[in-house]
Amino acid sequence: MKEYHNPYKTALDGLLIEDPVKSFFDFCKERESIRKKRERGQSPPWSSDPIFQKGRFLNVFREYDRGSVSILRFARNLKDELPKLIHALFFCRWVNRQQTIDKLTPSDLSKFEELVKKLNALKVWCNETAYPVESIQWEGKTYQRFEAASELFYNIQAQLTKIIISSERCVVKATKNVNEKFKMQNDFPIFMAIMDVAWFRPDIINPGSNVPTGIGAVAYLNRLQNHLGLSNHKETFDKMIALQNSYWPEAERILYPIDIEYISCECRKYFSYVNGTKSFKDKNLFIPSVNS
């Protein structure tokens, strides 16, 4: 992925984190404990930690986040139809809105006119705040976000499948190869769609693929890397995965590089509150609800 201005780069500057490895796994255990208490229907607060009480954090395992749950449900029957699966995942990541995905089925994606009507009938059809989704190129033509989601991905699902299959199960290589066609400045939506393939078809995309570091994870991954005396984030991913059994043997599954990157972003958020570089207001303020 290309480098961009990183507003979070200095979020942890001046803050002492004595053992960022232990803090990483402590975060995992507490966040998972919160998730399980909520699922059991316990009343809040689900943690004695005031930051977890007031701050908004994603789940440790991304498959439990609401958007991911919607995508997993939406595409659950497409495992054996790879072009349709890839089409569905690109559609979902271009929409990136749980409420929209939950109103549709994969069969809707093959009915262009009906799909357009259904999307246009929604007050909001996509999430415009989570990450930017630019226009894309395909064979000399520009497609805006709506056009790509509603029409283009259906028409090019076979070509996308061929590109992804040829990428040797590597999400970074597959993202690069697709973006050679799409020519996006920010290829994150491509990366997410292709990474999602690993949930359904690990024979096509390796769930243990190395991943690029997003801007939100840099500050904490740098702390981990320096603490462990390593040279780069890939080495850091590998070492943290190796350390999981020592720090968190009871976890329900092993962590992958994408998990280490993803959780590092959440740890950066947590310690930004500690450091006073992030505040509990607006969308950052968590208002507990058992069923939310």
Rank of each mutant, 00 (worst) to 15 (best):
Y131W: 13
R73D: 12
Y143W: 15
L109C: 02
A130Y: 08
Q185K: 15
S110A: 11
Q98Y: 05
P83K: 05
R145F: 09
I71L: 08
Q157C: 03
L109Q: 04
L85W: 08
G140S: 12
K84N: 11
K181I: 03
K162Y: 10
P132K: 02
Q185D: 15
Q137G: 06
A75S: 13
I86M: 07
E147T: 06
Q137S: 11
L109S: 02
I165G: 02
V116W: 00
R73Y: 13
D108G: 09
K173I: 15
G140V: 09
P132F: 08
P106M: 09
L89V: 06
Q157G: 01
S150K: 03
C92M: 08
R97H: 10
Q98C: 06
L115P: 00
D102H: 02
K173V: 12
I71Y: 00
E147C: 03
K176E: 15
L82N: 06
E134I: 02
L78H: 03
F112N: 04
F182G: 03
I136A: 04
P83G: 05
S150T: 07
F90W: 01
L122K: 05
K123R: 13
L85Y: 12
T129R: 15
E139I: 11
D108T: 08
Y143I: 02
A149V: 04
P132C: 08
E151V: 11
A158T: 15
F74N: 03
A174V: 13
L109Y: 05
D108Q: 06
N155Q: 09
R145N: 06
A88N: 10
D187H: 05
R76A: 13
V178D: 00
P83W: 14
F90C: 00
V133M: 01
V95Q: 00
P83E: 11
T105C: 01
L122N: 04
R76D: 13
Y143Q: 00
T142N: 12
L109V: 02
K123N: 13
R93S: 06
K183Q: 15
K111Q: 11
P106H: 13
C170W: 14
A75D: 08
E180R: 12
I156D: 07
